[in-house]
Design a protein around this nucleic acid. Structure first.
Length: 1034
RNA sequence: GGGUCAGUAGCUCAGUUGGUUAGAGCACCGCCUUGAUAAGGCGGGGGUCACAGGUUCAAGUCCUGUCUGACCCA
């Protein structure tokens, strides 16, 4: 067993090469599957941990945002697995939705509803299907390369028939609960493409362009006698006017001209100078005074509309332009519609899908609304209500496909009545843990509180169908909602194998309520918002409730989801809506929400700006673990945005990966030189060993706490700090012991690295795997158990004392620096003066060695080089003294304090135990420095005797020889013959140190000879010759 | 216009229930070290904690307002 050797470890590793090797091994051994099998599913909590994969939309390659989310989606499940829980991870694909259609249209060179219909819905959808799956292989390649373990074979797709059936079930269940209704929703609409546009589409670049429109100011006759002026840039909407809006707080002027009293915002009077320059001001009103007044409609097409033709109050009214009075046509404006709905005014929309007036607007029926503008204006002028007609330049949205100006139009839509469950959603939100925490009551909570009904239908082709069939004859109305394939089969008599259009549209049957047998039941044409589908993921991925009902009950809500912060309005929200409405439960118990990944210039990542390193290049240059650590240790996991820079990734390699690797290299080097390897042991009595084991235990505790809190940022910091202690203290101070093959040291470092690898496994899965498997010979670190601090050493006192030792050394080195005494130059004595100095007694060898002094003295006396300084403790002082606290602090700072026996006075005020401490300050110029707690100090004897100087020179010489060995390319254990060419004086000076020189440099012989000087010692040019000795005893 | 978050060193960010002299990494400068060495250590400069008020014995921290930025909503 003990003759086991570590595998050879490269001193200068290629991390990408190591990573691909591990990935290959995982693939061959199917380590992921093994890690699942090792944790058999039990009865749900607590031996299972439920992770929901938020489906990406894969119509492009993954970018940093996806990779970051993927790293978190991997790290947390790996951690939970090591903690003993089973974590199934199914990959999910979001397949439906507008991006797929847009991509298909682009590739097919067609655009808009009429063209798609002409092309054929079946062919079009078939194209969408292949298009969305085109990138799946690439995605798998990236995800695998980033070392994310996820089940691709058992993935779920929103286009799968079982998935779609579950979505259908959800729709019907909501309908049965009375939470689905059909209504109107105003959307941006392209009359040429005959399609509504989504928010995303109206926010694309180049959508807003300057355009000149007619601007019309018209008079509405109030029933109270005055006329109120409204302004519009869409005169064609005036026939559909149903109300006017004023701002309740705006001041409106009443003016009189030509016997008419006119009302408009006071702030707008100036801009109507031309028309009303002669008018008399006869009154002033607040908007709130006007609210509720009624007026005569301009047209009589909708004159019997209930509650219409009134003045309403609305906050969005401004006095930036127009008259401060807004004409409302609820069918043609979203705000118009909202205000009107609140006032109980129905939505009318006398425009057909081609943008032409319907027959309701009799004179211009069939005419395109834009073309009808002049006719409408002409008519209004004829009836004498036009006050002004001019033109207006403004930025106006255009269709991004066909560049025609858009209109806003009320579209028939299906809604989920979110407002009915809003209260419950807020309550259930209380059960969710949010990271960062402020999201709960912040963005998410506020968003819930203002939730409006959710429009879930889309006038599109590629998606889950709205499962509603309607009678095509209003004489015999009937509406059927379907919730399963079986129901469809029952009514339509065919086996349904595809729920996509057009197959699903072909399901037609006679209306059972129509005795004439003429009317037919036809599906409504819309498809579902794809967010409805992704929100259905927890149950739809397992085909609930048609299958897996028991499984679902045990795995809902999920334990953990993570996505970027924007999903508070997206996936997080739709999950929560459906969970509340369907199951009266939250969908997830913890949600991590990270920020946005930016380019190296702080701007959004942009291919054209080339402001970020290509992920695959980073994988090939630095490796996936470097990228993972870099992202996971950044503030992005605390919700803020974060710039990815190549230098940052390089820095990660230097600060994290290399130290870990170097520690492993170091251990393997010396253990293998000794012909041995380490074993798990925590019982070394060496203080350094005990210290690092205790530090390791603390590191484990902290990492566990941080990972339990999903604080990957903090977990990374803790490990990094530990790496510093490990490499810059433990290993550096223990070099000699390793050189001597000390088994305690080898076993201890072996044990520490074992634990470190396991703690790092979620955060550096590839590197920790290489080290761990090399170290232990075990199959995988990811099959290991998460370490527990109790496996190690608990010795908080030792940790405290050793940390004090490190501080003493650090202070001593700074004194050397201040007095220009290089470390190779031995000094005679270091004195630590501290009331607790004796606790360092077991460590004086370590200190002496580290700071290169002959002797370390411990003293509890205050050194002459220091003077006492009083420090107050305001925390204790404040409660007793109140307002006088500051006086005391001021006195003490100005030196106005004194000690009388046991009593301490600051000014006139006596201070008591606990309210102050007496500390030491160092006299300037002395070779001493205070310790951090101010209760002690370190003094260095900086006198350099000739003996010490000579010894220092000998150390310089040893170092030069070592350098020469290295330059000669010798192995660490090679013996050498050494040739020195120095002056006689120097040779005499070195005489006492020659034995040490030989043993330190493994010189089997030392020859004095001349030679051309090739280096320099203490200002003297000397020659050093190094040759490999022929016999190597090892 | 409203909301959320943020504003701390040249850059990226920590800063725990208010408490003495506000920290880290990077970058810069200087020094040192080297049998882990194309690595590492020590030290230095660099801060009106965005601004203005307020609460308090005491504010980077709590409150109010303003400004700036990001995101969301309108």
């Amino acid at each position: 067993m003990t003759d086991r050797r570590y595998p050879p470890v490269e001193s200068q590793p290629s991390f990408p090469a190591i990573e691909t090797e591990i990935l290959e091994r995982w693939k061959n051994d199917d380590t992921f599957a093994a890690s699942l099998e090792k944790r058999p599913a039990g009865s749900g909590e607590p031996d299972e941990y439920v992770f929901y994969d938020g489906p990406p939309f894969a119509n492009g390659l993954p970018h940093y945002g996806h990779l970051l989310t993927g790293f978190v989606k991997d790290a947390i499940p790996r951690y939970r697995t090591m903690k003993g829980q089973r974590v199934d991870r199914r990959f999910g694909w979001d397949c439906h939705g507008l991006p797929a259609e847009v991509e298909a249209e682009k590739q097919l060179g067609i655009s808009g509803h009429p063209e798609v219909a002409a092309f054929g819905i079946e062919k079009f959808n078939e194209y969408c299907r292949t298009s969305v799956l085109r990138y799946t292989n690439e995605w798998e390649r990236y995800v695998t390369r980033q070392a994310r373990w996820v089940d691709f074979e058992n993935d779920y797709k929103t286009l799968d028939l079982p998935y779609m059936e579950s979505v259908m079930w959800a729709f019907k269940t909501l309908h049965n609960k009375g939470l689905i209704y059909e209504g109107y929703r105003v959307l941006a609409y392209c009359w040429r493409c005959e399609t509504p546009l989504s928010n995303t589409e109206t926010r694309m670049d180049d959508v807003y362009r300057d355009r000149q429109d007619p601007a019309l100011t018209v008079k509405f006759a109030l029933d109270s006698g005055e006329k109120i002026l409204a302004w519009t840039t869409t005169p064609w909407t005036l026939p559909a006017n149903l109300a006017l809006a004023v701002h309740p707080d705006v001041v409106y002027a009443v003016i009189e001209i030509d016997g008419e009293q006119l009302i408009l915002a006071e702030a707008r009077l100036d801009s109507y100078e031309r028309e009303f320059g002669e008018a008399q001001r006869v009154g002033t009103l607040l908007g709130s005074d006007l609210v509720g007044r009624t007026y005569q409609p301009l047209f009589d097409y909708f004159s019997d509309t209930e509650s219409a033709f009134r003045i309403l109050g609305a906050d969005f009214v401004t006095t930036q332009d127009g008259t401060g009075v807004v004409h409302l046509a609820p069918g043609f404006g979203e705000e118009d519609q909202n205000v009107c709905l609140e006032a109980g005014i129905a939505t009318v929309c006398p425009m057909d899908s081609h943008g032409c007036y319907t027959s309701e607007v009799t004179p211009w029926a069939g005419q395109h609304v834009f073309e009808a503008n002049p006719a409408v204006i002409k008519h209004l002028k004829q009836v004498g209500v036009v006050v002004r007609h001019d033109s207006y330049d403004h930025s106006y949205p255009h269709c991004w496909r066909c560049a025609e100006p858009l209109v806003y139009r009320a579209i028939s839509s299906w809604f989920v009545e979110v407002t009915a469950v809003k209260q419950r959603m807020l309550e259930l939100n209380q059960q969710i843990t949010w990271v960062p925490e402020h999201l709960k009551e912040g963005s998410f909570g506020k968003w819930l509180a203002n939730a409006r009904d959710w429009s879930i239908s889309r006038n599109r082709f590629w998606g889950s169908p709205i499962p509603v069939w309607k009678s095509d004859d209003p004489e015999y109305p009937r509406l059927d909602v379907y919730g399963s394939l079986a129901e469809l089969e029952r009514d339509f008599g065919v086996v349904v194998t595809d729920l996509h259009r057009p197959a699903v549209d072909d399901l037609i049957r006679p209306n059972p309520d129509d005795p004439t047998g003429r009317s037919m039941m036809r599906r409504v044409p819309e498809v579902l918002d794809c967010w409805f589908e992704s929100g259905s993921m927890p149950f739809a991925q397992v085909h609930y409730p048609f299958e897996n009902t028991e499984w679902f009950e045990q795995h809902y809500p999920g334990d953990f989801i993570v996505e970027y912060i924007g999903q508070t309005r997206g996936w997080f929200y739709t999950l929560h809506v459906l969970a509340t409405a369907l199951f009266d439960r939250p969908a997830f118990s913890t949600c991590v929400s990270h920020g946005i990944v930016l380019g190296d210039d702080g701007q959004k990542m942009s291919k054209s700006l080339r402001n970020y390193p290509d992920p695959m290049v980073v994988f090939d240059t630095y490796g996936a673990d470097a990228m993972r650590w870099y992202l996971l240790s950044s503030a992005i996991l605390r919700g803020s945005d974060f710039s990815v820079t190549e230098s940052g990734i390089r820095e990660t390699v230097r600060q994290v990966l290399l130290p870990l690797w170097n520690s492993w290299y170091f251990l393997s080097l010396y253990a293998n030189a000794e012909g041995t390897s380490g074993t798990w042991r925590t019982d070394s009595s060496n203080v350094l060993d005990r210290y690092i084991l205790a530090k390791t235990a603390q590191m484990v505790e902290r990492a566990t706490k941080d990972l339990d809190a999903y604080d990957l940022f903090a977990a990374c910091s803790g490990i990094r700090e530990f790496l510093d202690v490990l490499t810059n203290w433990y290993i550096r101070r223990s070099r000699d012991r390793f050189w001597e093959g000390d088994k305690d040291a080898i076993d201890t470092l072996h044990t520490v690295l074992d634990v470190l690898c396991r703690v790092s496994a979620p955060l550096l899965p590839l590197l920790s795997e290489t080290v761990y498997t090399g170290l232990t010979g075990n199959q995988s670190v990811h099959l290991a158990d998460w370490p527990s601090a109790s496996e190690l050493v608990s010795d908080p006192e030792l940790v405290l004392v050793m940390d004090r030792v490190r501080e003493v050394c650090s202070v001593a080195l700074s004194i050397r620096k201040a007095h220009a005494r290089r470390v190779r130059l031995p000094l005679s004595e270091l004195t630590v003066s501290h009331s607790d100095a004796q606790q360092l007694s077991g460590f004086i060898d370590i200190i002496a060695d580290e700071v290169n002094v002959k002797r370390v003295s411990l003293s509890h006396e205050t050194s002459a080089a220091a003077s006492a300084v009083l420090q107050v403790n305001p925390g204790a002082l404040g409660p007793r003294l109140g307002g006088r606290t500051q006086d005391v602090i001021k006195s003490v700072k100005s030196g106005d304090w004194r000690q009388e026996g046991d009593q301490i006075f600051a000014g006139d005020i006596e201070l008591f135990e606990g309210e102050y401490s007496l500390k030491m300050a160092v006299t300037p110029g002395a070779a001493s420095a205070a310790l951090g707690d101010g209760l002690g100090m370190v003094t260095l004897n900086i006198e350099v005797t000739p003996e010490l100087a000579a010894e220092g020179t000998s150390r310089d010489l040893i170092r030069l020889v070592q350098q020469a060995r290295r330059e000669a390319g010798l192995e660490v254990s090679d013996r050498i013959t050494l040739t020195l060419g120095v002056s006689d004086a120097l040779r005499n000076l070195m005489q006492p140190f020659l034995e040490e020189l030989s043993s330190e440099t493994l010189a089997t012989s030392l020859r004095w000879a001349d030679g051309e000087a090739n280096t320099n010692l203490d200002g003297e040019a000397i020659f050093i010759g190094v040759e490999r000795a022929s016999i190597s005893p090892r």
